[in-house]
Design a protein around this nucleic acid. Structure first.
Length: 414
DNA sequence: TCTGGGGTCCTTAGTCCA
DNA sequence: TCTGTGGACTAAGGACCC
C-alpha cells in the first residue's frame, strides 16, 4: 500500500487530500509512522522524529494514528488478495507476498493480475497500492519499490503502479541498485560493505562468498551473496505463527520512581498475557526491556518452568526482572515481552507445573474487557499506583508519548 | 537530529549434560 | 574417576524491517 496510514486518514477526511499529512507520535518524543507523498516533498519520512518533521513542514497536518482502524482496513485488503490466490503471506499491515503461479491458467498471468488487484483495491477501498512482479520474493519486493510514487522537489510523481521484472532481465534490474536496497542491508552492514569497496548490488555480486562471510558472519554473508546473484528460494508461507508478543512504551519524561515503574511493568505484563490468551498461545520466556535516559538499552529475561498465558505469572516474572535492574539513571522506555511461544492447545498442563494457566478470574476479566472496553479492569498494582489502565489496543495506537501527557512520577520536566 | 512500537533473525558467551 | 567435546539450551545484545 502507498503511504498506508496517511492514505487511510485522507480517505476518512477528504479535505486533507493533496495536503502534507503526517501520522505518528504527536509528543516531542514521537516519530513519524507514515507521511503522505505531499509531506515527503519536504523531506519528511517514516521513523523520523516528529519534532524534526514539524520543523521541516510546520503547516503539515499531524495525526496521532489509529492502529485498530488500520488493522481493519488491512484485513479487508488481505481478503481481496486471498480472492486472487490462497497463497498470501502478509508481511505487515500494508504488504504481502502472493504466489500466483497456480492461478495463472485460470485468472491470467501475473502482470495482468497485478493490474486487477490494483483496480479492485482502488474500487473497494479507495486506496492505491503498488505491485512488483518477479520470480522471487526479494526481487518482487524491489520491483514494488520501483512501482511506487516518487518524490521530486516539484511534488509527488505518481508511479506506474506495477513493475514487472521479466525473466532474463533480473541482473539488468538488480545490479545497478545500491546495496542498501537489499533486504537486510542497513546502516551497519552498509558501512562494512563500503570498506570492501561495495556500493552497488553488482559490486556485491563480484565479491566471493568467503570474503562476505568473513566480513559479515556466516549467515548474513551467505544470504547477501545469494541475493546479489539473484538466488532466493524462500517460498510464500501462508500461516506464520508469531515468534514473540511484546508491549513497550516510551514515557513522556523519564521515570525514576520504583513504584511507578513496577506498576507499568504490571500493566504491560497484563496486556501481554491477554494477547497470549486471545492468540491461544503460551510463552516459555518473559523478557523485560529497559531503555535509560541516555538511550542505553538492556534486556533481562527468564525462562519459566512451564509455558503460561496467565497474567499472574507474566506480571510476576516482569516485576521480578525489574527488581534486579538499577533504575536510578531514570527510565525512558519500559517493555514486557513473551517469547518461546507454543500453541496453548498443544501444551498439556501437568499437575505439578506450578501454573494454573486459565484462572477463572482472568477469563472473566477478558470477558469484561471485551464487553466494556479494555480500560474497565486491570492489575491492582497499576490501579494503586494511580496509573490509567491503558489497554493493549490503546498502546498500539501510539507512536510515542502524547503531547503534554502527565508526568507519571510527578517529577518536574527538565 | 535525537531517536516509537511491533516484530524477526543472528551472534556470542556461558552452562549443563551425555 | 577424570577430561575433553559437542549439542542443546539460555541469556543478552545487535541489526534490521515496516
Amino acid at each position: 500500500m502507498d503511504a498506508f496510514y496517511a492514505a487511510v486518514e485522507v480517505r476518512r477526511r477528504p479535505e486533507l487530500r493533496g495536503k502534507p499529512v503526517v501520522v505518528g507520535g504527536t509528543g516531542n518524543r514521537g516519530v513519524v509512522a507514515a507521511a503522505s507523498y505531499e509531506a515527503r516533498v519536504y523531506g519528511i519520512g517514516s521513523a523520523m522524529p516528529s519534532v524534526r518533521a514539524r520543523r521541516l513542514c510546520p503547516h503539515a497536518v499531524f495525526l496521532p494514528g489509529d492502529h485498530a482502524h488500520y488493522a481493519e482496513v488491512s484485513k479487508r485488503v488481505m481478503a481481496i488478495l486471498r480472492d486472487v490466490t490462497p497463497l498470501v503471506e502478509p508481511l505487515s499491515l500494508d504488504e504481502a507476498f502472493l504466489d500466483v503461479r497456480g492461478v495463472a491458467r485460470l485468472l491470467g498471468v501475473a502482470p495482468d493480475l497485478a493490474v486487477v488487484i490494483r483496480e479492485r483495491i482502488l474500487e473497494t477501498e479507495q486506496l492505491t497500492c503498488s505491485v512488483g512482479v518477479a520470480s522471487t520474493k526479494f526481487m518482487a519486493k524491489l520491483a514494488t519499490e520501483r512501482a511506487k510514487p516518487r518524490v521530486e522537489p516539484s511534488g509527488p510523481v505518481w508511479g506506474s503502479g506495477v513493475h514487472v521484472v521479466e525473466a532474463g532481465t533480473e541482473f539488468d534490474f538488480l545490479h545497478p541498485l545500491p546495496v542498501t536496497a537489499l533486504f537486510g542491508v542497513g546502516p551497519a552492514t552498509s558501512r562494512r560493505l563500503t570498506r570492501l569497496g561495495v556500493e552497488t548490488v553488482g559490486d556485491l555480486a563480484r565479491v566471493t562468498e568467503s570474503s562476505l562471510t568473513a566480513a559479515l558472519g556466516a549467515s548474513a554473508g551467505r544470504q547477501l551473496h545469494q541475493l546479489a546473484n539473484g538466488v532466493d528460494d524462500r517460498p510464500v508461507v501462508v500461516n506464520r505463527r508469531p515468534r514473540s508478543i511484546s508491549h513497550e512504551e516510551t514515557f513522556s519524561s523519564d521515570l525514576h520512581a520504583p513504584d511507578a515503574l513496577d506498576a507499568e511493568a504490571a500493566r504491560m505484563g497484563d496486556a501481554v498475557a491477554r494477547r497470549l490468551r486471545s492468540s491461544s498461545l503460551v510463552a516459555r520466556t518473559i523478557v523485560l526491556k529497559v531503555r535509560f535516559g541516555d538511550f542505553k538499552t538492556i534486556t533481562r529475561s527468564v525462562t519459566l518452568r512451564a509455558p503460561t498465558d496467565g497474567a499472574r505469572e507474566v506480571v510476576a516474572a516482569a516485576r521480578e526482572l525489574l527488581s534486579g535492574v538499577d533504575i536510578t539513571p531514570g527510565v525512558r522506555l519500559l517493555g514486557v515481552g513473551a517469547s518461546g511461544l507454543v500453541d496453548a492447545s498443544a501444551h498439556q498442563l501437568s499437575f505439578d507445573d506450578g501454573s494454573d494457566a486459565h484462572p477463572a478470574a482472568e477469563q472473566v476479566a477478558d470477558q469484561i474487557r471485551d464487553r466494556f472496553g479494555s480500560s474497565a479492569i486491570g492489575p491492582a498494582v497499576a490501579v494503586r499506583a494511580g496509573r490509567g489502565l491503558r489497554s493493549p489496543v490503546d498502546s498500539e495506537q501510539k507512536w510515542g508519548p502524547d503531547a503534554g501527557a502527565p508526568q507519571a512520577d510527578g517529577r518536574p520536566s527538565r
